[in-house]
Write a protein that binds this DNA or RNA. Structure first.
Lengths: 141, 141
DNA sequence: ACATACCTGACTAAAATGGTCAAGTTTAGA
DNA sequence: TCTAAACTTGACCATTTTAGTCAGGTATGT
């Protein structure tokens, strides 16, 4: 399973973006400064977010990024998927060749990991950007 | 977050062990062959499982490992903890110095990761070796 | 005594992580 | 029209983690 800085940064940046994009697009430079994330790294992340139509970009001076959807419609699962942050617990499925340690049958813990995957994904699917925004009203920076 | 082969192997090996240790201790060699896990790697893993009193070892010929507890009392959370498979989603807490990207305040997604951690750990705490054994009766290898 | 099996620690190739660097292209505004 | 701000793309890289291997032990049932 992977769940690393990239995923965290993506969520942090999007929360930041959701807060400030009311009128103007938000530049990565601003997000970088506010959230303490490397600008170059943010660019990589936003490139993926754009490909997955989570944000839109506006080029040129005064340009920046804008959310492409309602914060309520951006689920965490979408974000993680966009930045390749996979909640994968088993490799068994992908290539049938060496599936489950090369055995023909499912490995004995196969069902477990499937269950876990569902458990975690459920959490992500029920959590939207909107939820995070509300969650932070009281502890506003 | 980390959840890698080491954790998977540990669970697989323990399920295997739980199945076969009715009379005699089970050698790592047997587990290695049945589960397709490197013997040397298994030894590293079992060293940790032993330190955490999840298994007992019997040396010498016909030796091997035996569960140290009832399968019902061995929760997944114990296993993962034993092999250092931490479900950590934030580094913010540990060192107060560079907590949450060096800011004094909690990062805006802090609560989220806390929630997620609890969500996953709950899953692991409610799952025992016994559950996995039952789960596999029908699809016995 | 000797084969089996546990025990320990050092070592390592390959992959992932968390970036940096360089060289663009686009466009608003002076 | 010039220019600076901002997006865009792709190559590159140091460090850490992963998933082991290897080499030597030590203990013990037969």
């Amino acid at each position: 399973m992977k769940l690393t800085s990239k995923g965290r940064y993506a969520v942090m940046a999007l929360v930041d973006l959701a807060r400030f994009d009311n009128i103007n697009p938000v530049s990565l430079r601003d997000i970088s400064l506010r959230q303490g994330i490397s600008l170059d790294y943010l660019e990589q992340i936003f490139s993926k977010l754009k490909k997955n139509e989570i944000v839109k970009s506006i080029r040129g001076t005064q340009g920046g990024y804008v959310l492409n959807k309602n914060p309520n419609d951006i689920k965490l699962t979408n974000i993680f998927h966009a930045v390749d942050e996979k909640v994968k617990t088993v490799q068994c499925k992908k290539d049938s060749k060496k599936g489950c340690n090369g055995k023909a049958t499912k490995c004995i813990t196969h069902n477990l990991w499937d269950e876990l995957e569902i458990h975690i994904n459920t959490f992500f699917e029920n959590k939207s950007l909107k939820d995070l925004l509300n969650n932070n009203k009281e502890t506003r920076v």
